[in-house]
Design a protein around this nucleic acid. Structure first.
Lengths: 163, 163
DNA sequence: ATTGGAATGTCAACAAGACTGACGTAAAAT
DNA sequence: ATTTTACGTCAGTCTTGTTGACATTCCAAT
């Protein structure tokens, strides 16, 4: 084996390295969702509710189509979730003034409160992880994740950052 | 705001930083599973089948209990998946010689072939991501993921590394 | 040798959350 | 006036998870 950059690069991209990354993603995602899941269970909600609330909080007044693009599910699937959230008064609809076909979505005070609970729990674990590994590792973490996204989602992700 | 280490540390752990990490995980996981999902669809399998095959390949001869711990599902849920994989001759059982209650699991040649297809597709995306961001970012990526795991899963993850 | 418990399998029932397909309504755009 | 868009909804299906109950096998301890 050569001891130049090519050699290092090949060594760096071994199957073992890749497989470790795959398994790390799998196990970490379990941890990532574990804390919110426990809270959601108490309210008889699921991850789908959490995701919807997260992005309605993130983009207040978003319409349904935009939310569908972010979440990557069908309107029927989202609609089921939204219906319960609206019934339970965690989310409100406002009919668009400019385009009256559009429904703009907002969290109610109750919705904001639950969303805060969920994001606090999820952030807490991430904060601890960040704290343990330091800023440079966090930068790398985000770079790899961003590079793994589908191009369209990468655009969506960046738009959220700058909004 | 103070301009000392405490200040930097606080700035580093802003809600914005944490939320970006959360959203990056969400979007990246979609990319992470997208390619294998497309392949699985052709064979009428799902992610559960992929995960089972991945770890049977990773730990050949594992018994069911061990696999359950790794996957974090109920035996009934795993059993349904294993049954179809065994019927389709992608996985074989061997009854333990030392403890004849235990079923040791192995991929057949067909199983190995499909697993290879799936892991190749999944690795390809990760390889591209790694290549784009470089070795240091990859180190940070794994560090953060490992720090986010539940302690028990972290142990499991490390055991897999050294086996 | 019998008994308790562990490992495994299996049946039934259920729920969340994804999907497709079809249809309806309202409103904007052409 | 017609077409397209945005949204909702009904119906049915699939995967993957859950609980609970029960049977079998078999090791290990009394």
């Amino acid at each position: 084996m050569q001891n130049d950059r090519t050699g290092e690069s090949l060594l760096f991209l071994t199957d073992e390295q890749l497989r470790q990354g795959i398994e790390a993603m799998f196990f970490a995602y379990r941890g990532f969702t574990a804390d919110p899941d426990r809270i959601l269970e108490k309210y008889n909600y699921g991850r789908a509710h959490h995701r919807a609330m997260h992005f309605i909080n993130r983009v207040p007044g978003t319409n349904v189509n935009n939310l569908l693009k972010i979440l990557g599910v069908t309107k029927q699937s989202l609609n089921r979730v939204l219906r319960t959230l609206i019934q339970d008064e965690l989310v409100t609809l406002k009919i668009g003034t400019k385009d009256r076909r559009e429904r703009h979505l907002y969290l109610t005070d109750n919705g904001k409160s639950l969303e805060k609970q969920l994001s606090t729990a999820q952030s807490h674990r991430m904060r601890e992880a960040y704290r343990r590994v330091g800023p440079d590792a966090v930068t790398g973490f985000k770079q790899v994740l961003e590079a793994m996204m589908d191009p369209k989602l990468q655009v969506t992700y960046k738009k959220l950052r700058s909004s």
